[in-house]
Amino acid sequence: MIEVNGVSFSYKGKKVKQIEDIDLKVETGYMTCLIGHNGSGKSTLMKLIYGCLVPAKGNILWEKRKLTYKELYKYRNEVAFVTNDAPWVSGKYSDTIDYYETIYPDFKREEFAGLIKRFGVAEEKLKLARSNMMGGLSSGEEMILKIAAAFARHPKYMILDEPFANLDPVAKIAVTDLLHERILKNEMGALVSTHLLDEITDVVDYVAVIEKGRLVKYADREKIIAGEGDLSDVLKGIKKDL
């Protein structure tokens, strides 16, 4: 389990706290959906969890122990962070795969290739990218590669920042299915931030709503729904309120 414990953070020079006093868990066997406006702090929170940023107050606990800089590389062996914010790795696709094979012991090249197909990117596209820089692919295709590479590492935790943004419906469903599959087998815990709720609402276990850096709602799906119809309607209502 990864625990965010009373974490606050602000970017340098800014008085307003980007993240204020947040408590959140990412637990194996469960999927948490993080929703909030652009600028609400979703991505900052995810970067704090991944260790790109250091909390000003509070801490991140990894399996009950405070996450430290010394442990970060071990931590990141278990935690995959996928975001649109940063290019995957600069350079050739084939170099990136070699790199992954080197640093992630559980990464399987064949599985990665299979997943890309499963998510809807044709092999021919890859052959194109093999010799070129990553720029040979669309942003959606690049995201699929990032997600596939993350899955192929068999991480214990997946932190996904807007993974569905540029994906077509086939890919969205395929990614959601695989997430759900691994979560149900207790192989993984996931935190997913997304605006696009339709494909994911049925399988989300916990919902965290962030607004201006604070968690304004955080509960399991049944409590969030509490007799109000179904989760996707409730979430759309929350988004309107935000």
Binding site: G29, Y30, D177, H180, L184, N186, D202, V203, D205, Y206
Partner: peptide, 13 residues
């Protein structure tokens, strides 16, 4: 969890 997988829904449900 098996039922959640079969019905493609959350384990909470």
């Amino acid at each position: 969890r098996a039922l959640a997988g079969e019905l493609k829904i959350s384990v909470i449900t």
